[in-house]
């Protein structure tokens, strides 16, 4: 595997393989010395054109636990402010010797475009509304390991609640969950569903109350105000009344049901209940697992010996 741009480019075997490698990484993370020399001499650059806390730090700690060197680039403090283009930025960093770029960008398809400008591997850490493949992998890892089913989500019902339309997490999760055998139901107001939803192979539902008592996993999405045009929802009060997870609704969850959220949470909007009060909450476990799964992705891409060291000179 050279790049990880989208969940669609992964076969079910690829997905299961990465989750198996993540078990090794979880074992490493549980030790007192949580570090192995597997990627010594490799350089991983995180290039973030959008804000991020957990994804950027998760990739960085994943790279460090595998002994890779890391470089961090954030657009807000870079020469992008002087007008440097994405292509020039990537070519400049490549010239310093980078084996993998972890890229987040507000435009869908930016990571794909970057593959033309460098010999390094590209890992998509979220591009616009399009994809966030490592989030889907860590979510699948969290659910399969919580239920002890190892590599299958067969027969599990998973409700994804909230802003589906603007969510790359939802697009990635739906693809991975359905291919691992889960039944996915989307719970959202019609204005927050994409127009082509009929082709996605999922069912939809207009109210969280209809599903909360029966699902195995309740996956709450963040309201992404930064991506919304005005007027997609009548008002936050109404959204919260119909779609938020409240203590009353949480009480109706099955005893074995998991509650998940990709973070960051909007407390009081989609999460009215404190997740630390929910025995089924896996929200912090998702963060922990994220490091293991990203280690597995980095190791799969850089550790197999398949990637030639970048030798691209400035005058190549």
């Amino acid at each position: 595997m050279k790049h990880l741009l989208s969940t669609h480019s992964l076969s079910v075997d690829d997905i299961v393989g990465i989750l198996d490698v993540a078990d090794h990484m979880t074992e490493i993370n549980s030790r007192s010395v949580a570090k192995v020399p597997a990627l010594r001499g490799k350089t991983v650059a995180s290039v973030f054109f959008e804000d991020s806390t957990r994804t950027r730090l998760s990739f960085e700690s994943a790279a460090k636990r595998l002994s890779a060197d890391t470089m961090t680039f954030s657009a807000s403090s870079s020469s992008v402010n002087k007008g440097e283009s994405l292509r020039d930025t990537i070519e400049t960093l490549s010239a310093m010797g980078v084996d993998a770029f972890v890229v987040r960008h507000k435009s869908s398809g930016a990571p794909q475009a970057i593959t033309q400008w460098t010999n390094a591997s590209i890992i998509n850490a979220g591009d616009g509304w399009h994809q966030h493949p490592t989030q889907a992998l860590l979510d699948a890892y969290t659910i399969t390991r919580s239920f002890g089913t190892k590599d299958s989500l067969k027969g599990r019902s998973i409700a994804i609640v909230g802003d589906i339309k603007h969510s790359r997490v939802a697009r990635s999760d739906i693809d991975v969950f359905t291919r691992l055998g889960a039944q996915v139901v989307l719970v959202a107001p019609p204005t927050l569903l994409p127009h082509d939803i009929a082709t996605w192979g999922v069912t939809t539902c207009g109210s969280i109350d209809e599903v909360v008592g029966s699902v195995d996993v309740l996956y709450m999405l963040r309201m992404q105000f930064e991506r919304m045009d005005s007027g997609v929802i009548p008002g936050l009060g109404e959204y919260t009344a119909r779609f938020a997870l409240t203590p009353t609704r949480a009480a109706k969850l099955s005893p074995h049901a998991l509650v998940m959220h990709p973070g960051p949470m909007n407390r009081g909007i989609e999460m009215v209940v404190d997740p630390s009060d929910l025995p089924g909450s896996r929200i912090l476990q998702q963060v922990t697992n994220g490091v293991s799964v990203r280690m597995a992705v980095l190791f799969t891409i850089l550790g197999s010996g398949a990637t030639a060291t970048l030798q691209q000179g400035v005058d190549a």
């Binding site: 090794h24 490493i28 597997a38 010996g305």
Partner: peptide, 16 residues
Amino acid sequence: MYRDDYSLRPIVLSAP
């Protein structure tokens, strides 16, 4: 993950 030849040949993970 501790081999000194991982850049020379693919690493196959065995059991943890």
